[in-house]
């Protein structure tokens, strides 16, 4: 059991309110991802859970016990930092053994645990090296290894992959997913900027904005049923198309949103029509940018290579049941 329960959490730096009335229930063994624009308070929330920051108001419970005043090392957590935070003057082995040594475990136990973790992360060959003699991916694995050996109840990651290149990122993402399969009872909280990471790894996603939780749900829930304009626009790539005013009137909504893949290019009379200004071919599919007279062009996703070129006049037909309607406050309207 290792649930995390957050109640009415506020965090202030002086007068600046960084987190506002956060309430969250994270179940044991769950993989939860925090997303949100830069500066919204993701790291702060994570650091409050870890105990590195004190909370201004509210409570944090781990395993049913309020941990507000408990030292970080006694919360049963482990954290992986964006910058790895490896101890530069210690070998990989010593880096991983450091926390165990502080726990006062006997030498053999420490060695066994470190070896086991190193095996799991393919680090056995590097145990005697200093961090500076490792590649970025290897360093990241050491940082994860250092967290694993502590057998944490809750695993905290703050943008662990953002310093890696694209290929390595994919590889490490898969490794972390496998880790999650192995550590079934360990709760994981993961902060990221990366849509793909969030969508593929998360059991549930927490969307934050300006220190306020916007919506919590599984990736598909958020994708299919965003509870606000902000979430609708934030989740998914490319961004959801938004149209308002005269374009939305036929649907009796203040704003309508429609994802690129839910639009068809109809020969003549769709709901809207406009001129193609640009098209992007990705090979497997393509994006067509259509100027319908709204402030932003509408993006349409087409399978295969684009059949339309700049200047063509096309009609756009939305799949009506995939259309998202929002009222003037940005709240979704019932279908």
């Amino acid at each position: 059991m290792s649930s995390v329960k957050i109640r009415n959490l506020y965090k202030r730096y002086g007068k600046v309110e960084v987190l506002r009335d956060v309430n969250l229930d994270i179940h044991s063994g769950e993989f939860v991802v925090f997303v949100g624009p830069s500066g919204c308070g993701k790291s702060t929330l994570l650091r409050c859970i870890s105990g590195l920051e004190t909370v201004s108001e509210g409570t944090i419970e781990i395993d049913g016990r309020v941990v507000n005043d408990v030292a970080p090392s006694k919360r049963g957590i482990a954290m992986v930092f964006q910058s790895y935070a490896l101890y530069p003057h210690m070998t990989v082995f010593k880096n991983m053994a450091y926390g165990l040594k502080l726990m006062g475990l006997p030498k053999e136990t420490i060695a066994a645990k470190v070896r086991e973790a190193a095996e799991k992360l393919q680090l056995t060959a590097y145990l005697d090296r200093l961090p500076k003699a490792l590649s970025g991916g290897q360093r990241q694995r050491v940082a994860i290894g250092r967290a694993i050996v502590r057998d944490p109840k809750v695993f905290l990651f703050d943008e662990p992959l953002s310093n890696l290149d694209a290929a390595l990122r994919v590889q490490m993402r898969i490794e972390i997913s496998q880790l999650k399969e192995q550590l079934t009872s360990t709760t994981m909280i993961y902060v990221t900027h990366d849509q793909v990471e969030a969508m593929t790894m998360a059991d549930r996603i927490v969307v934050l904005k300006d220190g306020v939780v916007q919506q919590v749900g599984s990736p598909m829930e958020l994708y299919d049923h965003p509870q606000s304009l902000f979430v609708a626009g934030f989740i998914g790539s490319p961004k959801m198309n938004f149209l308002s005013g005269q374009f939305a009137d036929p649907f009796k909504a203040h704003t309508v949103g429609i994802r690129a893949e839910h639009l068809d290019i109809a020969p003549a009379d769709g709901a809207w029509s406009g001129r193609v200004i640009y098209s992007e071919n990705l090979g497997s599919d393509s994006f067509v940018y259509v100027d319908v007279g709204a402030p932003e062009p509408i993006i349409v996703r087409q399978p295969g290579k684009a059949a339309h070129h700049a200047g063509d006049v096309v009609g756009l037909a939305p799949k009506v049941h995939e259309l998202h309607r929002f009222d003037a406050d940005g709240r979704p309207m019932m279908h």
Partner: peptide
């Protein structure tokens, strides 16, 4: 010195 190193050690229980 990098803050994360100190924080990481604190989480390790130092």
């Amino acid at each position: 010195l990098p803050r994360e190193i100190m924080e990481s050690a604190r989480i390790d229980g130092a």
